[in-house]
Nucleic acid binder design. Structure first.
Lengths: 193, 193
DNA sequence: GTCTATAAGTTGATAGAC
DNA sequence: GTCTATCAACTTATAGAC
């Protein structure tokens, strides 16, 4: 993770982001962050008040990144079913899991309003965004009538649960399979051309 | 967790099971286990070789429990769609999450073949079991033809992802909503009576 | 079986020099 | 801004008494 092109504060945030992703909040020590960033204790405590402060910056960044990547696919060209398929089938580092979803399993993150807020907002936004797209699809006649909010939650859950199944299996295959299954079910709501 | 009706070894396993569920492997110390079980260090290291040994016993137990509860619903009465709905809608402590799925986020568990095996087996079994039930449903004419393996993975993913969304939101609602969405999509494959 | 003592290493910081 | 020293508490045991 050490990259001399970034300044210390930047390297510390990026290292924290990666370590939170891989090991969670409890599993990530200031020492490990400093080692990964190539920064000393003095540097870390100069730029940030402590582990919590660094984690906050890292979580905000991961949350923003998730939203940007999702929006890029969801606002793309094509019909609503095509846009949803593009989002679900997007290239992902499946075995690494979701940098934001992962944090929901960390009780210390969820117990801290400051750390928790970006996680809550991100999934709230994603479910609402996909629900809106489903409404759009029904209105345009690209989808048969369905419950938009419930279907949106199901689609987001398939991704988050797909990561769990893939990690359990040790291979990305169950993730891809779950996405295929979800799109197969959804295809029953796509009117014939 | 202290229950004088259980012996020390039993209380240690149950305490470990609960702590792994709530805080994960990294977040659970031998000291916390002993405190929760009302057992001393000597007792713990007499019955178990260490934290890993105790975690192994606890994970085996959680995995067996998940399979038993799932089988109870899945082998129940009714048509295939009814049995799947009964399983998906089963009463759950949603905000607590899944005791087995949670472990997939713990790198120390996934890196250890002994601790990882029960997790891998449990989800492998569950996906195969539901896939078999879907095959049964199609054969009986209770479901229109669909991809059984992919649909099974999608349904299990909806549950695991539902836990993630619920914890992110701080309320069980997104879990219930995701299940409703999944059953709504599946209902398009249930022939009219 | 359970208890207490001991210990080397880590955690998450603070203090003050440069 | 970054460095080194220091620190109290915790982690994950091991040893030996009872």
């Amino acid at each position: 993770m050490y990259d001399p092109a970034m300044d210390s504060a930047e390297r510390l945030i990026e290292s924290t982001r990666q370590l939170l992703w891989e090991r969670g909040y409890t599993g990530t020590s200031p020492k490990a962050i400093q080692l990964s960033a190539g920064a000393g204790q003095g540097s870390m405590y100069h730029h940030f008040s402590g582990k919590r402060d660094l984690a906050h910056a890292a979580i905000e960044r991961s949350s923003a990144a998730l939203r940007e990547r999702a929006e890029a696919q969801l606002s793309g060209p094509g019909t609503v079913p095509e846009r949803l398929a593009a989002y679900l089938r997007r290239q992902r580092d499946v075995l690494k899991g979701c940098a934001v979803g992962r944090l929901t399993q960390d009780p210390d993150v969820m117990a801290d309003p400051l750390l928790r807020a970006p996680v809550e907002e991100t999934f709230g936004w994603l479910r609402a965004r996909i629900s809106g797209i489903l409404v759009e699809g029904v209105e345009r006649g690209e989808l048969s009538p369905l419950d938009p909010a419930a279907t949106a939650s199901a689609l987001v859950a398939v991704l988050q649960g797909g990561y769990v199944l893939a990690r359990a299996a040790g291979t990305p295959e169950p993730f891809t399979e779950a996405v295929t299954g979800a799109l197969g079910l959804l295809s029953a709501f796509v009117p014939a051309p």
